[in-house]
Structures are given as structure tokens and as C-alpha cells.
Amino acid sequence: MHDRPEAATPAAGRQPAPAEILATVAAGGVIGACARYGATLLWPTAAGTFPWTTFWINVTGSSAMGLLMVLVTERATVHPLVRPFLGTGVLGGYTTFSTYAVDARDLFDGHRAGTALLYLTTTLAAALSALWATSALTRLLVRPRPRPDGSTAA
């Protein structure tokens, strides 16, 4: 899909070079990582308790991904670096699977298996629900862009 030149519209411009994509992903990743690290400094969670900060990071990041992906794949023609920057970079770097898994492991190790299982399942359920709901809401609120021939892009 991405490497079909004929699919590129004039608004999307030329395809970016691999080095441009990598630099864009890295820049977005730094922004996302700083937002995540800053949040953990602002709202630290004590050992042995439900890791609320990482919970909300992963839920809000998944929700934002739902918004972004509907907009860039179904509703608008954007610059080809927007998705690598915001999706792979910022949101990919902001959310974290490793902290989620290691925090759950630490809860198990601290004999808080109930909290660990609750954390594992509620994060999964909340992140998936948030992404699904945000996608549905975006489809509802943002109209498909009409094509020149009058039909809709969706």
C-alpha cells in the first residue's frame, strides 16, 4: 500500500526516504518517551499498589491511536510522515508494554497476585475499549472527505 507510487495523491507528495522516516520516528519517540517519563515523575505509584500512571498512559495512548488511525487512513490525505511521527513515534514511544509486564511481575513477586491479575486484565480491556470507542466516535463525528467525482472516500 505504502510503496505504490500511483496511490500517492498530489497532496501527499513524494514518498519520504528511509532515513527521513527513521529520523521522524526517533523524534516522535523522544516526545512520547518524555511525556511518559514526565507522567511517572508527576504521579509516582508506590510498589505493591495498582500502577495507575502506566494504566492511564496506555489507555490514553491507545485511545489517541484510535483517533489518529481513523483520521489518516479513512478521513484525510496527510503528509506521508504524519503517521510515522504521531503513530509509530509519539504514541508508540508514549505507551509501554514492557513497564506493564514488569510491573505485573513485581506485583506477583510481592505476593499481590490479585492486584497483578486485575492490572493485567483491566489495562487490556480498557485500552482495547478506548481504542474501539474513539475510532467509532471519530468515524461518527468526522465526515468522509468527498472525492472530486462527488463520491466519498470511505
Partner: peptide, 19 residues
Amino acid sequence: GPGLCATLSTYSTFSYETV
């Protein structure tokens, strides 16, 4: 920790691909 591993992993893409 918060640099390499947390940024290497992703929950948002995991959620997106699952949905």
C-alpha cells in the same frame, strides 16, 4: 528502562492491531 525498553515496546500499536 524508561528510555530504550519502554520506547521499544508499545501498547497503542498492540491495541490497534488487536482491534
